[in-house]
Simulated assay, not measured.
Amino acid sequence: MTQVSMVVNGKQVSGEVEGRTLLVQFLRESLSLTGTHVGCDTSQCGACLVHVNGEAVKACTMLALEAEGAEVGTIEGQANADGSLNVIQQAFQDHHGLQCGFCTPGMVMSAAALLKENPKPSEHEIREYLEGNICRCTGYHNIVKAILAASGQDVTAIAAE
């Protein structure tokens, strides 16, 4: 076992891990941050997406030890300081960008990374950016609409689905 330390959602954390422990396992099992989902274990679905030092990373492809000293952001860290939904989370709720909710944490984390890079993305740019996230319920239309709304763009002309 090896000691690993990092900052997760603004708090210093540490724990003992085996060398093979994935970041997603450390977050879920050691820190009880279960919002980061395990969907495929093969980096295909995006349900485990987190931010590591400001970059979007699929936590099922990164060892916990690789995050030593890093700043890690999870879906639990997306809410406002008072616990209310942030602008992206609220847009997902307002525009029905979720159904079963399994992919939602990864989608929100992807949206946050995209909007950090590109504050006013087009519909095409959003769809292209979400290529690594799979949703089996929504068909992506309302997810795209939610991200457009979160970016402050007018979505009234976009038909509801």
Score class of each variant (00 low, 15 high):
Met1Thr: 15
Thr2Ile: 11
Ser5Asn: 08
Val8Thr: 07
Asn9Lys: 02
Gly10Gln: 04
Gly10Phe: 02
Gln12Met: 08
Gln12Leu: 06
Ser14Leu: 00
Glu16Arg: 07
Gly19Lys: 05
Arg20Lys: 12
Arg20Asp: 13
Arg20Gly: 07
Thr21Asp: 14
Leu22Asn: 11
Val24His: 04
Val24Ser: 07
Phe26Asp: 09
Leu27Tyr: 05
Arg28Pro: 08
Ser30Arg: 14
Leu31Asn: 09
Leu33Pro: 07
Gly35Cys: 00
Gly35Arg: 01
Gly35Thr: 05
Thr36Asp: 10
His37Thr: 13
His37Lys: 15
His37Glu: 15
Val38Arg: 13
Val38Gln: 14
Asp41Trp: 00
Ser43Asn: 15
Ala47Leu: 02
Cys48Glu: 10
Cys48Val: 04
Cys48Ala: 05
Val52Asp: 07
Asn53Tyr: 03
Asn53Met: 04
Glu55Ala: 11
Glu55Arg: 11
Lys58Gln: 15
Ala59Tyr: 05
Thr61Ala: 08
Met62His: 06
Leu63Glu: 12
Ala64Trp: 04
Glu66Gln: 15
Gly69Phe: 06
Ala70Met: 02
Ile75Arg: 08
Glu76Asp: 09
Glu76Ile: 04
Gly77Arg: 00
Gly77Val: 00
Asn80Gly: 00
Ala81Phe: 03
Asn86Ser: 06
Gln89Val: 12
Gln89Lys: 05
Gln90Pro: 07
Gln90Thr: 10
Ala91Gln: 07
Asp94Glu: 14
His96Val: 06
Gly101Met: 01
Phe102Gly: 03
Phe102Ser: 07
Thr104Ile: 01
Gly106Phe: 02
Val108His: 05
Val108Arg: 09
Met109Leu: 01
Met109Gln: 11
Leu114Lys: 12
Leu115Phe: 05
Leu115Tyr: 03
Lys116Pro: 11
Lys116Trp: 06
Glu117Thr: 13
Glu117Ala: 13
Glu117Gln: 14
Glu117Phe: 02
Pro119Lys: 02
Pro119Cys: 03
Pro119Trp: 01
Lys120Ser: 15
Ser122Ala: 06
Ser122Asn: 09
Glu123Ile: 15
Glu123Gly: 13
Glu123Ser: 15
Glu125His: 09
Arg127Cys: 07
Arg127Ala: 05
Tyr129Phe: 12
Gly132Tyr: 08
Gly132Met: 08
Asn133Val: 12
Asn133Thr: 11
Arg136Ala: 02
Arg136Thr: 06
Cys137Trp: 04
Cys137Arg: 08
Thr138His: 07
Gly139Phe: 01
His141Gly: 10
Ile143Ser: 06
Ile143Pro: 03
Ile143Asn: 09
Val144Gln: 12
Val144His: 10
Val144Ala: 13
Ala146Trp: 08
Ala146Cys: 04
Ala149Cys: 08
Gly152Tyr: 08
Gln153Glu: 10
Asp154Glu: 07
Ala157Arg: 09
Ile158Met: 13
Ala159Met: 09
Ala159Asp: 15
Ala160Met: 10
